[in-house]
Design a protein around this nucleic acid. Sequence first.
DNA 1: GATGAATGAGGATTCATTCAT
DNA 2: AATGAATGAATCCTCATTCAT
Lengths: 221, 221, 221, 221
Amino acid sequence: MVGIKHAPRPAAAETELRPRARRKAQRPQQILHAAFEEFVERGYTATRIEDVAARAGVTKGTIYLYFQNKEELFQDVVRKLSQPVFDEKQFLEQHHHRSCEELVRIYLDTLYEHMTVNLYSREILRFLIAEGRNFPVIVSAHFDEFVKPLLTMFDHILQKGVHEGVFEIWAEDHLSQILISPALTYAIDTLLGADTNLPELKVYVNTHYEMVMRTIRKSTI
Amino acid sequence: MVGIKHAPRPAAAETELRPRARRKAQRPQQILHAAFEEFVERGYTATRIEDVAARAGVTKGTIYLYFQNKEELFQDVVRKLSQPVFDEKQFLEQHHHRSCEELVRIYLDTLYEHMTVNLYSREILRFLIAEGRNFPVIVSAHFDEFVKPLLTMFDHILQKGVHEGVFEIWAEDHLSQILISPALTYAIDTLLGADTNLPELKVYVNTHYEMVMRTIRKSTI
Amino acid sequence: MVGIKHAPRPAAAETELRPRARRKAQRPQQILHAAFEEFVERGYTATRIEDVAARAGVTKGTIYLYFQNKEELFQDVVRKLSQPVFDEKQFLEQHHHRSCEELVRIYLDTLYEHMTVNLYSREILRFLIAEGRNFPVIVSAHFDEFVKPLLTMFDHILQKGVHEGVFEIWAEDHLSQILISPALTYAIDTLLGADTNLPELKVYVNTHYEMVMRTIRKSTI
Amino acid sequence: MVGIKHAPRPAAAETELRPRARRKAQRPQQILHAAFEEFVERGYTATRIEDVAARAGVTKGTIYLYFQNKEELFQDVVRKLSQPVFDEKQFLEQHHHRSCEELVRIYLDTLYEHMTVNLYSREILRFLIAEGRNFPVIVSAHFDEFVKPLLTMFDHILQKGVHEGVFEIWAEDHLSQILISPALTYAIDTLLGADTNLPELKVYVNTHYEMVMRTIRKSTI
DNA sequence: GATGAATGAGGATTCATTCAT
DNA sequence: AATGAATGAATCCTCATTCAT
């Protein structure tokens, strides 16, 4: 009987840890996600620690066991919940048999899909714009870690195209940035909740792709 | 002729008022600008009415003589300090002798100059992204009043070009939006204070212009 | 022409004063009445000087020309707008041919009518109860000037009745106060806005009168 | 027997709680009483939450843990600190052997004693008169819960007397209200702090009682 | 480790009062 | 005499943070 008193030991599902320890190990993640959602819904200042706690299923005090303070929590949310759109190496390997034009297309499709599906990216963009002034460090960290790789990768595709004689890089600077811009426009439109004005995605991407190709395709006269 | 050179004496409006009345007439503007600057520096929530007052050279109470409350003040800042980039009619008249390609170039130059010179536009964009969730009305009002005309006008230039046989509109939708996107990217980059990553404007505009032309110029084979 | 420029001199209607002077002379009264009404509607603290001013048709500043401050204004309202229910001398002369029983009846009728018709009395009672703590002087002044005479006068009627052998004063003290009490109850009920519970006045007065008579009428066995 | 002498150990409710929980359990009462006293001394508007807190030995914030806001606090004070004068059933059982005349006397004695001893009743009456305009709900709630039962109970005594042939109800309506009125007068006088004019209670009650009896005692000729 | 009661600094807003015009 | 713009003290309420349990 004594043994039965205790809840049966759960199958060590995800980790080897005891339930208590496991629960503890998950706390920070739970809290980060809860915080993210609250920050998304209300913005930094309007978000109350207590609401984050409630959403995470803990209480105020617990938040402070894992995070110094609200500011720290916010920064951690941005840092830890940002997800790279691509893993460049993997992307190139996965699509190594594709033509450069196809790579551009897949790149764009992936990018837009990421933005559509992945709440995080979009909302973190909002955070950065809204609160960036007060958190300059995470802004540039985010830029380095997530935006720059995006641009670099597009650059690589362009270069590959040049190398293969299908693309033409006629400008010295900023070309990738300019060519990808429409995706940012789309993201901002979404952020502004301009639902009415939101373009139909498929058509939008087609046009975007066409714009890119017309711009860089090497004329083969 | 000499006489005519001077602007016509302003209607008794401002100058002839007694000092007190004149001061009063200026208050709302003073406050709006002070508020704008505080909102820019701190964001909506972090801005204290008392700071706005101090910056405007008045005291707390005075703010409330002219604005219902903080929210109202914020909305008025956005509403009243937004400035249209173009007056389309005037723009077209002024440049009626230009070719369509030149019109596109002037359009872009004007747009970027506006963004560079005009603090307001840029920061109001930040407001809209940061606080838009809480002020949906001004977001859509702003879109209708300032963004939509911008797009429409670009559309008109494109159509003119098509009419004259120099441009080709090969997409049914969103073309203008996509073609102008790089300007938004530039604005956002500025907002993010990515000073390091900020492109040299002249080169950036050139590239943007070239992108547009490559995209829409009718091939004349 | 010069003469016509000025507004025609209004006929010296109520006083010999010039219009301007007359207007000035009326100001304090106007303000007192406006203040009274505001105090009635909102209570002392919730009444704003500006509202009083607006109701009096002047501006804030003007109030302070005639009254030291809000407190002073309140006290003046209570002092100057209280109106005696009876002029005892006149009352007795007017009804000298009546029997004592009739005098009691007329006394009660007058009292209730005063309370019903005369907003002031009722509301000033509320002031006294609500704010009396903070204005002890006017409470006792009011008591001496308005309540005491009321009781005294009833006493006199009783004594007259005793003298004429129709009434019997069987208690040494407080008899008048007790016999008049139902009128106070009625006033309070009105104040509490207990409209639902408010008795039909005529019936109520009848019962009150009957109570009084049964209490003091000399049995004539 | 010794053991039994002690009151049965109170249900774990209060005593067995850990100190923290116990303190929490008492907070609302502490605050209510502190608030009551402040409201009594200053009136609703002039009372500052911070003063209530200080008197309750807590800080501002704590008040808001237990009460939504100042208004709510006020209403709760009125609601929860009002105490019925009688428990009718108990009163009648306790005095079932008394004559109806004695019942009337005891009723009055109890009523006056309640008013004298029980600060709350008196001051809550002041609240209702002073602030009733702004809290109509609690006025009528209070009337239904505390005043009406008082009248009803007096009615019942009268009816009992009629049944036993000693009283005569000669008026259809409002009789109880009128007969009890002097008690209200007494309460108001106390409220007005008319200490000078305050009757000596014993004499006053005697006269009141005599008035009632002369009014309703069935003549036994 | 977790809790949640308590704190108290901080900020929006109101309004009696002043005073230059 | 009258105005009404401006002031700033006063007060409600919120919420990040602490800490005894």
